[in-house]
Deep mutational scan, measured.
Amino acid sequence: RQGFVPAAYVKKLDSGTGKELVLALYDYQEKSPREVTMKKGDILTLLNSTNKDWWKVEVN
C-alpha cells in the first residue's frame, strides 16, 4: 500500500540494495486516504521525497 507520511517521522536508511528505505521513528495513524499508518520500527520503501514535509512511501 502506498501513501504519504510526515518526513519528520522517518529516517533514510542505507540499504545497499538500490531501493531507498526509511525507518519509522514514531507511530503514525493515517488521517486521510492519501496517508498510510506505520508503527515505530517499520521499514518502508521510499518512493518520493521531493516534498520536504511529506514523503511518499510503500508499506511492505
Rank of each mutant, 00 (worst) to 15 (best):
residue 35 E to V: 05
residue 52 K to L: 09
residue 6 P to A: 02
residue 24 A to G: 03
residue 58 E to W: 05
residue 19 K to T: 11
residue 43 I to H: 05
residue 42 D to I: 04
residue 48 N to M: 07
residue 14 D to I: 12
residue 49 S to I: 07
residue 32 S to D: 11
residue 41 G to C: 07
residue 43 I to M: 06
residue 11 K to D: 07
residue 54 W to Q: 02
residue 20 E to C: 15
residue 8 A to I: 10
residue 39 K to P: 01
residue 26 Y to R: 15
residue 47 L to H: 04
residue 39 K to I: 08
residue 49 S to T: 10
residue 6 P to C: 06
residue 15 S to V: 13
residue 54 W to M: 05
residue 40 K to W: 04
residue 56 K to Q: 12
residue 1 R to F: 06
residue 54 W to C: 06
residue 20 E to Y: 10
residue 60 N to L: 14
residue 44 L to P: 00
residue 25 L to W: 03
residue 52 K to Y: 07
residue 26 Y to M: 13
residue 31 K to G: 07
residue 10 V to L: 15
residue 5 V to D: 01
residue 18 G to I: 10
residue 27 D to G: 05
residue 21 L to W: 09
residue 31 K to T: 12
residue 56 K to T: 07
residue 2 Q to L: 07
residue 16 G to E: 13
residue 18 G to P: 09
residue 2 Q to T: 12
residue 14 D to C: 15
residue 46 L to Q: 01
residue 53 D to I: 15
residue 60 N to G: 15
residue 11 K to R: 12
residue 4 F to N: 04
residue 53 D to L: 14
residue 7 A to V: 07
residue 8 A to P: 08
residue 24 A to D: 00
residue 23 L to I: 15
residue 10 V to T: 04
residue 31 K to P: 05
residue 11 K to A: 10
residue 7 A to M: 04
residue 6 P to F: 05
residue 38 M to L: 09
residue 36 V to N: 02
residue 22 V to E: 00
residue 8 A to V: 10
residue 47 L to Y: 03
residue 47 L to E: 02
residue 36 V to H: 04
residue 10 V to Q: 01
residue 44 L to F: 10
residue 57 V to P: 00
residue 50 T to D: 15
residue 39 K to F: 08
residue 9 Y to V: 07
residue 58 E to S: 08
residue 11 K to E: 14
residue 27 D to A: 06
residue 28 Y to H: 04
residue 49 S to W: 08
residue 53 D to P: 02
residue 42 D to A: 07
residue 35 E to Q: 11
residue 10 V to I: 08
residue 37 T to W: 04
residue 40 K to Y: 05
residue 13 L to M: 10
residue 35 E to A: 06
residue 1 R to I: 07
residue 2 Q to C: 11
residue 16 G to M: 13
residue 32 S to E: 08
residue 42 D to G: 03
residue 23 L to C: 09
residue 33 P to S: 11
residue 18 G to M: 11
residue 32 S to C: 10
residue 7 A to N: 03
residue 38 M to Y: 01
residue 59 V to A: 12
residue 46 L to M: 04
residue 43 I to L: 08
residue 48 N to C: 10
residue 12 K to V: 10
residue 44 L to T: 01
residue 1 R to D: 04
residue 8 A to K: 15
residue 44 L to K: 00
residue 49 S to P: 05
residue 22 V to N: 01
residue 13 L to G: 02
residue 16 G to C: 15
